[in-house]
């Protein structure tokens, strides 16, 4: 598969602050690539540079053969953008919004009309086409927001945290839409801070933190970095201070790492069931009340924790 996107050492500075620090990666045609990272990691800034909204301080990106620096119009014709926040005209109907945005993508006449109908069908809003967007639920608005990005059948679709702040049902619908689009051959660059979304959708994942791409690969490749480990999660009371317990947990045989994340203690080990009894005993000795225990297989959360020492939610 050919690369549809090649990011070359992309940097964005705001004065003395470096928001993106030399990010490089490629996306192949037909894949879903997720940029996974916590809020403020540089995901939106990266996508803004790739969509020609911000000019990179240095570096470049080639999208469908067009440089974001030298030929931004060529890039804009090739990409579709679904921004993080809703960007719609609430006093216009869903159909009027799609028509307007289609016109901005140089569609007109019958091709515009048929494309608008197709997209309405695709986002499941054909029967609400003549309703004003302001009468829609948050999830429906999100679907129109996505529909706008699909109108001109872009070669590469940027989706910047499209599920933020919506109900689980709408979130499910959006994830299914992304998968459907990909099945139809659309290449997607998806940013999220939800590990589950990245795991479910992506062919490959790039983990970004503090403006740096710290890992890249398939989920399997990334979890291998953590090793064949399991993570034991202990949920403690809100008034507990489990940080004092960490050194004693690390002394337990076969405990590779232990961290406190809010009201949770995570213990990384090759075998959770072998260390479980010792961990509970240590907690009891410290007088820390455990409310529940989870055992997690290696996942992207664990990878992020392993690479940064912090949870994605931090």
């Amino acid at each position: 598969m050919a690369n549809i996107l090649e990011v070359q050492n992309l940097v964005k500075n705001y004065g003395d602050f470096q928001a993106v620090k030399g990010v490089s990666f490629n996306i192949q045609e037909g894949e879903i690539f997720s940029l996974l990272g916590p809020n403020g990691a540089g995901k939106t800034t990266t996508i803004s540079m790739l969509s020609t909204l911000y000019e990179p301080t240095s570096g470049d990106a080639i999208i469908a053969g067009h440089s974001v620096k030298k030929n931004p119009m060529g890039v804009r014709n090739a990409i579709g953008v679904v921004p993080q926040d809703l960007a719609l005209y609430e006093d216009l109907t869903a159909k009027e919004n799609l028509i307007f945005w289609g016109q901005m993508y140089n569609l007109s006449g019958k091709s515009l009309s048929s494309r608008v109908d197709e997209v309405l069908e695709q986002i499941g809003l054909t029967d609400k086409a003549k309703n004003k967007v302001k009468t829609f639920s948050g999830g429906m608005k999100r679907r129109v927001n996505i529909g706008v990005g699909l109108l001109h059948k872009p070669q590469l679709l940027f989706m910047d945290e499209p599920t933020v702040g919506i109900d689980p049902q709408s979130r499910r619908a959006i994830l299914d839409t992304v998968k459907d689009l990909n099945k139809q051959g659309m290449t997607v660059l998806y940013t999220t801070h939800y590990m589950e979304e990245a795991e479910e959708l992506s062919n490959r994942v790039g983990i970004i933190d503090h403006g740096e791409l710290i890992a890249i690969g398939t989920q399997k490749e990334l979890t291998k970095q953590v090793g064949e480990t399991e993570t034991l999660i202990l949920h403690v009371g809100e008034n507990e201070d489990p940080s004092a317990l960490i050194p004693s947990l690390k002394e337990i045989k076969n405990v590779l790492d232990a961290n406190v994340i809010g009201n949770e203690i995570s213990v990384v080990t090759p075998s959770a069931k072998d260390v479980l009894a010792s961990v509970v005993t240590k907690a009891n000795e410290r007088g820390i009340k455990i409310y529940s225990i989870d055992i997690r297989e290696p996942n992207l959360e664990a990878v992020f924790l392993h690479l940064t020492g912090r949870a994605l939610r931090d």
């Binding site: 969509s51 020609t52 119009m73 804009r76 014709n77 921004p83 809703l86 945005w101």
Partner: peptide, 14 residues
């Protein structure tokens, strides 16, 4: 402030 200006700027419109 509503984000539509930003969205316009990433369409092929100068």
């Amino acid at each position: 402030s509503g984000g539509t200006l930003t969205r316009l700027l990433v369409t092929p419109t100068n």
